[in-house]
């Protein structure tokens, strides 16, 4: 019923507008075309100026409303992200300046030079000097942006520091899984053809390097202040490890491992205090459309102090020992059994 009312109302509005429009044609015939045109011209010129003024006020108001909800007030959660925030500010300053100037000129000129009987348009067809100015100035500005931008880009995409913690991230429809290389600091080889329900990452357990690898689902723990290098895989379609708080993202591509690294600088606990949000968590969003549940492909990052991280790591058992308890000499079997349930893929 509500819908019908809405539709009826909509149709009514349209009919009214159409009638006004039709009437306006008769009016213009009565008043004379030229006069109507002049009137319309004045009204529209005035509106254009109004649009400029209210538009700029709107821009300011929008900023008031939403700036606090962006990620900037809380600052970048990674060292590298600071670089990006700085770039962003520079770019906003430059483009904002150009935006205000050009929009103001556009609408001001439109208003100022509206048609008037006593005005004659100026014949001004070209000026090489002006063209040169607005070729060179933007070119120089762009070069400045390119230089700063690329400096940040090379720093962020360059090789990870040697002492980074390596974590392998694997995306599949629709969840994230993580693998830590264990004590030998080497990730065991993988071969997608070995994938089974239990060994769902397709780890090649013939590779001794895999024996101490730790496999966890959904939640990733990393220590604060140490560079973390992600080696990113995908098992089916393209996903994307989106880390908005750290200002980074990188696609997960089947068949081509990708990588990104960053140095988290605020622990989850500190961030809860900083944002005043007791439920704050760092989230990994999938930023590349990956199927029907793309919007629910959520991962969690817990940034903690080194001690907490080490403690957490020590509590984990290797995937190898959980899958093949018989082959591992002495292990806490009870612990492993507990882990098996976690290792199995959680179907969403």
């Amino acid at each position: 019923m509500k819908e019908f009312l809405m539709i009826a109302l909509g149709v009514l509005v349209f009919v009214v507008i159409f009638q006004i429009a039709k009437a306006s044609e008769y009016v213009s015939v009565l008043k004379g075309e030229a006069k109507t045109r002049k009137q319309n011209n004045k009204i529209n010129a005035f509106f254009l100026l109004g649009f400029l003024v209210f538009g700029l006020i709107g821009v300011w108001y929008c900023n008031e409303l939403y700036y606090g909800k962006t990620l900037f007030p809380q600052g970048s959660a990674s060292v590298e992200g600071e670089e990006i925030d700085r770039m962003l500010l520079i770019t906003i300053a430059i483009t904002g300046f150009v935006f205000v100037i050009t929009q103001a000129l556009l609408f001001w000129f439109s208003f100022k030079y509206q048609e008037q009987d006593n005005r004659k348009a100026l014949y001004f067809a070209h000026s090489n000097k002006l063209e040169l100015i607005w070729t060179i100035v933007p070119a120089i500005t762009m070069m400045v942006l390119v230089v700063f931008g690329l400096k940040a880009w090379f720093k962020i995409t360059g090789d990870a520091p040697k002492d980074s913690i390596v974590v392998e991230v694997t995306g599949h429809q629709f969840a994230w899984e993580f693998r830590y290389p264990g004590a030998d600091k080497v990730l065991g080889k993988k071969n997608y053809k070995l994938t089974t329900a239990k060994n769902n990452l397709g780890v090649d357990f013939d590779d001794p390097a895999s024996h101490d690898d730790i496999h966890v689902n959904t939640t990733m723990h990393i220590p604060v202040g140490v560079p973390v290098k992600m080696v990113i895989h995908s098992q089916d379609v393209i996903h994307d490890v989106g880390l908005p708080h750290f200002r980074l993202k990188m696609d997960a591509v089947p068949g081509i491992p990708t990588t990104q690294w960053f140095t988290p600088k605020i622990t989850t606990a500190d961030m809860k205090k900083k944002t005043g949000n007791p439920d704050f968590t760092y989230e990994i969003s999938c930023d590349q459309l990956c199927g029907a549940n793309h919007f629910a492909m959520r991962g969690v990052i817990i940034v903690e102090t080194m001690e907490e991280y080490k403690k957490w790591l020590a509590e984990q058992t290797s995937e190898y020992s959980t899958l093949f308890p018989a082959k591992v000499p002495t292990q806490n079997v009870a612990d492993s059994a507990k882990l098996v349930t976690q290792v199995l893929p959680q179907k969403k």
Partner: peptide, 13 residues
């Protein structure tokens, strides 16, 4: 160039 075209014009809307 568009802006300069509008400058000192006699604009019909």
């Amino acid at each position: 160039n568009w802006l300069t075209t509008l400058w000192k014009a006699n604009i019909r809307f």
